[in-house]
Every structure is written in structure tokens, then in C-alpha cells.
Amino acid sequence: MKKVLLALLVLALLAGAAAGGWYQLREQRITEFAATAVTLATPVTVEIPSGTGPRALARLLTEQHVTTDAELLYLYIRRENLGPKLKAGEYEFSGDLTPTQALEKILSGQVKVYRFTVPEGLRAEEILPIVADSELKLDLKKLEALAASPAFLRKAGVPAQTIEGFLFPDTYTFTRNATEESVLTKMVARALEEYKHADADRKNGVKLDLLQTFTLASIVEKETGAPQERPRISCVFHNRLKKGMRLETDPTVIYAMRLLRGVYNKNITRKDLETLHPYNTYKVAGLPPGPIASPGTAALQAALHPIECEDLFFVSRNDGTHLFCPTYECHEANVRKWQVEFFRKPQKQGANSAHP
């Protein structure tokens, strides 16, 4: 009997040792697996749905070749108790990547993002296709419908009947779950945020409200591409408004003709200048009803904080900059030199239309 008990004890000890050895071997395999990199020749995007558990995640990453062994990855997740910390979303993996690094990206929620950039001075009809054509793959018709929806405009805080001028020029970052409404809402919010910053530095005596500020800023934006000129361009328009003079700014005429004809054409005719329209500042006094494009930060700041000047006129030097004058006689001489004589001479430079 003693021999039997002794034999059983020996067998138990051997079985325990075997089990301990197997466990240690398994732990070693898991550790080595977690630290062994996989080389991804091209980036791999994996969508992890909400509610995905450790085993499903391990299988998903292995099927997408982010890792090489679903069972070992599952065991690693279980061993480290990572299941409750995993975050759903769209993730991109690239280059040399260990399972540990792949999981760290998921644990920290480093989801894949998509970017698009809107330059300054574009109209809404130019901006919406940029958004639709981005990697977000949004629906242009839905974007256009929202941009024309009074309910959406009110909800987003747009103080006008159209979204023109309130799609702020910037580089935007979104995740795959972005919708047409969330994207446009963020763009409008950026515009209103920049207005608040500019308003905090508003010059004493400048009484423009929010809509008027965006309207004047959009004109300043379209009138010059030279950043240093914006506060002076703004000064000219403020001076003309104070004196009750018409602004007589070409970009508003171009915009008016776009609204009338449905076609954007930069060439202005005498008939255009004489066409009565709320946006034709050659015919209507004061600011037009709303913005003619989306102004950037510098233009908003210039609209609310013009420099001190006595200028009432400016004319293009045909190089992106302007000459300024306080009197019509001075302005007339500049027009003669830079818009008449300049183009009589043979040259390859492009022309800018005369300004106020």
C-alpha cells in the first residue's frame, strides 16, 4: 500500500512539474509573440466595431495580417487584462509593428483621422466640393442641402440666410464617423470662435455687428492677397462708410453678377457696374447684405481693427499690392498710371481690375 501511495505521489509531482513547465513555456511563447514585429508593406486600416471582445479583436487583427496568431494575441490580451480598455474605432497600422504596439494604439484610441484644407477667400460653392471630395467621402448634395437649410443655419449659429462667409478657412481633422452636419457645424463654430478673438481686440468706435464684420472681412479678403495691406484696405472702407460714400468694390459686383447669372466671371463690364443689385456696391450704399466669401483670421481682425488713415481710394499695382490715396485727384493719377498707361505698354503681366 505504501508503495502504491508513493507511486501516486511521484506521478502527481511529475504531472505538476509537467504542467508548470507547459505553463512557463506558454507564457514564454506569449511574451515572445507580443514583442515580435510584423512588417506591413502597405498601411492596413481596420474598423473595430463597438462591443468587440478580446477574441473577436484577435481574430480581426490576424485576418488583416496585423498580427500572426489570433490565439496568442487573445491570450496576451487576457493575461494583461486589456479587454475592458479596448476602444472601438477605425485604426491604421503600418511599417514594423509588434502586437503590443498595435494594442497600445487601440488602447489609447489613436483612431485614423482624415484632413482637408480650405484656403482663405473661397465661396461656399467652392468650399463644399472640397469637403465632399475629401477622404471623408461625404455627400455633396447633403452638404448643399444643409448649407441652404434655415433650420440648420439657426442651429449652427449663422446670423444670415445663407452659410456664405461662415465656413472658416482652415485645416480640419475628422474621424471616419463624421457626418455632413457635424463637419459644417465645426466649420461654422471655427468662424464664430475666430470672430470672438477678433472682437476682443475691436478698435474703439468700430460698431460693426457679427454679420457686418464677416461681410466687411470677406471684402477685405477678396481685395488683397497681401497680409500687410488688410488693415489699410479696411481703413479705406471704414472711412467711406463714415462719409456715406459707396464702397465701389469690384468683388461685390462680381458676386452680384454670380447671383444674377449663375456663373462666376471675374471680368466686369460697364453694364455690370450699372446693374442694380443689393451686392453691387457701385449702385447701393453701405455694406452688402452678407459676406461674399469666407474670410480668414487676418481679414476678420482687420475688419474690426483698421489702422488710422485718411485714405478713401486704392488702386492695384498689378502685382498683388495697391496704392492708396486720400483724394480723388491723387487716385485719378494712380489709375491713369497703373490702369491706363500700364496696359498700353506691351508686357506679360496679368491685370487686376481697378478698385475704389
Results as ranks from 00 to 15, higher is better:
Phe116Asp: 04
Arg115Phe: 11
Val118Cys: 00
Arg115Tyr: 11
Gly121Gln: 08
Leu107Asp: 04
Lys112Arg: 04
Glu120Thr: 12
Thr117Ala: 12
Gly121His: 06
Ala124His: 02
Leu128Lys: 05
Val111Leu: 00
Gly109Leu: 10
Gln101Cys: 07
Val118His: 04
Ala124Asn: 06
Ile127Thr: 13
Val113Lys: 12
Glu120His: 05
Arg123Pro: 09
Gly95Cys: 10
Phe116Leu: 01
Pro99Val: 04
Phe116Asn: 06
Pro119Tyr: 04
Ile127Lys: 07
Thr98Met: 02
Leu103Asp: 05
Ala124Ser: 14
Ala124Lys: 05
Val131Tyr: 02
Gln101Asp: 09
Lys105Gly: 03
Glu120Gly: 05
Arg115Glu: 10
Ser108His: 08
Ala102Glu: 01
Thr100Ile: 01
Glu104Thr: 06
Ile130Glu: 10
Leu128Val: 04
Pro119Lys: 00
Glu125Asn: 13
Glu104Ile: 02
Leu97Met: 14
Leu128Phe: 04
Lys112Glu: 02
Gln110His: 14
Ile130Gln: 11
Thr100Met: 04
Val113Glu: 11
Thr117Gln: 10
Leu122Tyr: 12
Val118Thr: 01
Leu122Ile: 05
Gln101Tyr: 03
Lys112Ala: 01
Thr117Lys: 12
Gly95Lys: 01
Leu97Val: 14
Glu126Phe: 00
Leu103Gly: 10
Asp96Lys: 14
Lys105Arg: 15
Tyr114Asn: 11
Gln110Ser: 13
Glu120Phe: 09
Glu125Asp: 15
Ile130Asn: 10
Val111Arg: 14
Val111Ile: 08
Gln110Asn: 14
Lys105Met: 03
Ile106Thr: 10
Gln110Val: 04
Asp96His: 12
Lys105Gln: 15
Val111Gln: 14
Ile127Leu: 03
Ala124Thr: 15
Ile130Pro: 09
Ile106Trp: 00
Thr100Val: 03
Pro129Glu: 11
Thr100Cys: 03
Asp96Thr: 13
Leu122Trp: 15
Ala132Ser: 13
Leu128Ser: 08
Val118Ile: 15
Leu103Pro: 07
Gly121Trp: 09
Arg123Cys: 07
Gly95His: 07
Asp96Leu: 12
Ile130His: 06
Glu125Tyr: 14
Val111Ser: 06
Thr117Ser: 13
Val113Thr: 15
Ala102Met: 05
Ile130Trp: 06
Pro129Asn: 10
Arg123Thr: 13
Arg115His: 13
Ala132Lys: 07
Arg115Ile: 02
Arg123His: 11
Val111Tyr: 09
Ala132Phe: 09
Gln110Leu: 12
Asp96Ser: 14
Pro129Ala: 08
Lys112Tyr: 02
Glu125Gly: 05
